[in-house]
Design a protein around this nucleic acid. Structure first.
Lengths: 220, 220
DNA sequence: TAAATAGTGTCTGTCAGACACTATCTT
DNA sequence: AAGATAGTGTCTGACAGACACTATTTA
């Protein structure tokens, strides 16, 4: 029989703060890389986790006290050198949490517009590379993917939704085009309510359709 | 400390036989699932593999005697039930081998046009699900992705290349559109040679460009 | 009416697919 | 010339982005 590699999960946890993409980083409190910033991570608990996705959500819940609203597998990173403790593999998940649920923003670090492979933060393990890939994936998602929906509260105006898309993609979107695409894709529907700011013309409120919620459920 | 999960790699190995997509399946010769068909798989060898990609290529080489020409990570499948031996995770790779290198076609099984989730072959473990995902991925790759190039010999005519694309995608492509797209994407270039069948107008031979070969190298 | 944001109608450049056309070879 | 495949020119419908327009509210 062979030496079993170490298997962990890491979570790249994104949210939007003041319209800017932020990611969660924790200062490590033990070796290796003690004191250095790192992604959220942990071991699989074989007695309680029914999948690596499950483990990732548990890790986020335990260390952060937050339910993630969406998670998807990014990729599995592996090799003999990435962890000094030995040959390891880490299944990495991209997760998003609603800005409105984040109470403590101290551990969220901004992802600049000019994000490059050259590490902005000097992260432990191979987490610079992982974060780079995660940001690329999230930015390159098709312009009108439903991912940004998981950053919204239960109802929202189309203008609010557009702002979130623009925050994620880091590029302005034409209002008319945005609305046409979002509506025709059927990922949102009017809730029937109206948001009246008493300042100008009130906006219709929308919510994610069942179709989109299914996508969410399937990631649980 | 926790019980370490089992970590394996599985390889979904595709090739084209008579214009039809085929995948490699092996009859298992030990428990669990003795005698049943399964994907190619194996354990990580921590002394010799420098990544799970490496392990996947080694597995293909050892069990098949074939160098794969391209491999990419599909996804990691995990859970307590998928392997009766215990909580396991498998990093799954999609690989392709050149048809011209396959001597023994007996272990390659056709992927029908009407491929659905309903298992055509009754595979061991969760390999039905894995194969389904792999076929979906390969079929849904953008129509003009460079993946089919890795099924070609070193030089080829554009008509041959188009046939391979059509075999993978299972749908006819317009000749003029195909040529324009392929050329403008810069993934192939004329080799300068000519293929003369002595039957009709000879065709120019092409080869993959450096750009594409880099993509291949980066997967090693 | 002015200010502000919500929401829409329409033009245009781009591009993939359709398809007919030309080109070059053998017999 | 006929037959066969290689390779190209051109039209068109769909559609994303640009942008100006209308709509609805408060003050």
């Amino acid at each position: 029989m062979f030496v079993k590699p170490i298997l962990t999960v890491d979570v790249v946890c994104f949210t939007l703060i003041q319209g800017t993409l932020h990611t969660l980083l924790m200062k490590r409190e033990k070796e290796p890389f003690n004191g250095q910033l790192a992604l959220l991570g942990g071991y699989i608990h074989t007695e309680e986790d029914s999948s690596t996705m499950d483990a990732a959500k548990r890790v986020a819940r335990d260390k952060l006290g937050l339910e993630v609203t969406y998670a998807e597998q990014l990729e599995t990173f592996s090799g003999p050198l990435r962890d000094p403790r030995g040959w390891s593999a880490s299944v990495v998940y991209i997760a998003v949490v609603r800005p409105s649920m984040v109470k403590e923003t101290a551990d969220f670090y901004p992802i600049g517009t000019t994000w490059t492979k050259n590490a902005e933060y000097n992260l432990a393990f191979d987490h610079n590379e992982i974060l780079f890939q995660a940001v690329s994936r999230i930015r390159n998602k098709s312009t009108y993917s439903s991912l940004p929906l998981f950053l919204m509260d239960s109802t929202f105006t189309l203008t609010e939704l557009q702002n979130v898309y623009e925050g994620m993609m880091q590029s302005p979107i034409d209002k008319a085009t945005f609305r046409r695409k979002i509506i025709e894709q059927g990922i949102v529907e009017p809730s029937g309510e109206i948001l009246d700011t008493k300042l100008h013309r009130p906006a219709k409120l929308y919510r994610a359709t069942d179709k989109t919620i299914q996508l969410f459920k399937s990631t649980i």
